[in-house]
Design a protein around this nucleic acid. Structure first.
Lengths: 120, 120
DNA sequence: CTCATATTCAACCGAATGGTTGACGATCCG
DNA sequence: CGGATCGTCAACCATTCGGTTGAATATGAG
């Protein structure tokens, strides 16, 4: 009933949650360690993590008494593709996009050859 | 004080607002025309448009008595770049991405020639 | 001028958000 | 066992959100 994009974008709309995602970019973390740099209560962070997990942006695995949080970058695909349908309007020659683009080229199928040189 | 990403992602989190953006993808529209396909009141749509405008996702220009709404795809860059720092983890070979990529190639500088064929 | 059209404003409503605190269930350590 | 640590649950609170309705404000058309 509710579009996954709803929950993904809503999860991304909070700065605390985005900060958490950035932290998890470096490594998996326990809930307590995630909470440490923030000024709010542990319970609040626990809720934020639940929201991120519900959106599929992270996964949580309990090992012993600590619950490990792991980033799930795959979950951003849907949102990324959706946004792209707008982005293609403006030619994006942003650095980040170019790096991504060149990285992608290496993964194209072998039988595809592209010559960008405009003079025939 | 509040990160622009907050407002952009929050604006995108609502399905009605995403639908509006999709409509504006085809053409600029007056407020009343935007509201037409939806079941909710005109005032509600007016609020949604205000939120989209506040996020910079659309611009509104009043000409005569009608207010025209125009998509501003540029405003998605920040969010797109932010998401990309996570997406680049997983190589994305999605159809939409490939289409985007091929579209981008046409805009590369003339002196750049890329041969993807792996057999020398 | 008068009337209709286009859009917003203001007040209100119920539900969801983001936070707190305190108690609670697990789990490890000595 | 007993105590400390990890994390969630439950209740509560203030604020925001998404919607309604009805009145108000342009502006255009006849």
């Amino acid at each position: 009933m509710t579009d996954p994009l709803d929950t993904v974008f809503a999860a991304l709309a909070d700065p605390t949650r985005r900060a958490i995602l950035s932290m998890l970019l470096e490594d998996d973390m326990a809930v307590t360690d995630v909470a440490e740099p923030f000024q709010m209560s542990l319970a609040a962070i626990s809720k934020h993590l639940a929201i991120l997990a519900a959106a599929g942006l992270i996964s949580q695995e309990k090992r012993g008494r600590v619950k490990w949080c792991k980033l799930e970058p795959d979950s951003l695909r849907g949102a990324s593709v959706w946004m792209q349908s707008f982005g293609q309007f403006e030619p994006v020659n942003l650095d980040a996009f170019e790096r991504f683009l060149l990285g992608e080229l290496a993964d194209l199928p072998d039988d595809l050859t592209i010559d960008v040189d405009s003079t025939p």
